[in-house]
Amino acid sequence: MIAVAAGPNRIDPYVIPALDGVAYGLLVFVAAAGLVFCFGVANILNLAHGMLYAIGGYTAAAVLDGSWASLALALGVGVLAAAAAGVLLAGLLTPVATGNHLTQALLTFGVALAGGSLLVAGFGPDDPQVLVPAALDGSVQVAGHRYAAYRLVFIVVATALAAGLYLTVRRTRAGMLVRAAVDDPEMVACLGVSPTRIRVGVLAAGGALAGAAGVLGAPIIGPGADTADTVLLLSLVVVVLGGLGSMVGTLLAALAIGEIQTLGVALLPSAAPFLLFAAMAAVLAVRARGLALRWAAT
């Protein structure tokens, strides 16, 4: 055994963490994409975003019983519930002047606090167990290692979701309106598209993405008392690292965070607490000029 370890096996122990990092990163991407939408298009810093993810997660824990039908049901219910919560948020935010970020942040934080409390009251204070479909419960062989089948399928599904998202934003009329609203909301309003409708739509879409991530990612970042905070923090770091408006940047940032959280921890366990911090500082330092130019008051 020891004799073989010098060869290709030196990277062998890190294959599984690296693969896990991809799954983790894609999950964070789907969750963060919703936040990017709300922030980039509707100009709302939605601090309740983590709660929307938790709605999906708790739905998955409650509905999943190991069958495929339950997965479909959980996905449908979770996405609808989180999207409905997004619409509710949009409704609550209507009287708040747009561009008043402090008030928006406080309002969405209040909703997150109350919603999180309701979720814990409804589903109990313990972290619930999540049952994946029986066919995916086992493990498969990847490069000579056993790897959870669900995560492998999740990587495929999340990649499809990311591709679908990209095509929607790039190719459809709704996507064009969204991009136009980022650039020039006044002009979009002049074209006869109600900004209120765009805002409600974007918050609903952001909620749906968070809900989908919550259901599909429940076996990876499971529902629990800390879920909302964790997801919000990871999404915020993704937004800070990846910038706004570029989906490729968001994807790269999310994958980097996934690798840091899994591969980085496996490689440098002693430095694990600081890795996220260090990554954020490093990327911002490299991009400082660009960021300063982009974010400076113009």
Binding site: H101, A105, L233, V239, V240, P273, L284, A288, W295
Partner: peptide
């Protein structure tokens, strides 16, 4: 360097991330 180039809601976001990361470090160190 993280905070001062930013303005408005971006500051809100970056400072929130810094605060949360500090809590994470405190919990793990």
């Amino acid at each position: 360097p993280l905070v001062v180039p930013a303005r408005g809601v971006i500051v809100l976001m970056i400072t929130l991330a810094i605060g949360e990361l500090v809590v994470t470090v405190l919990g793990r160190w």
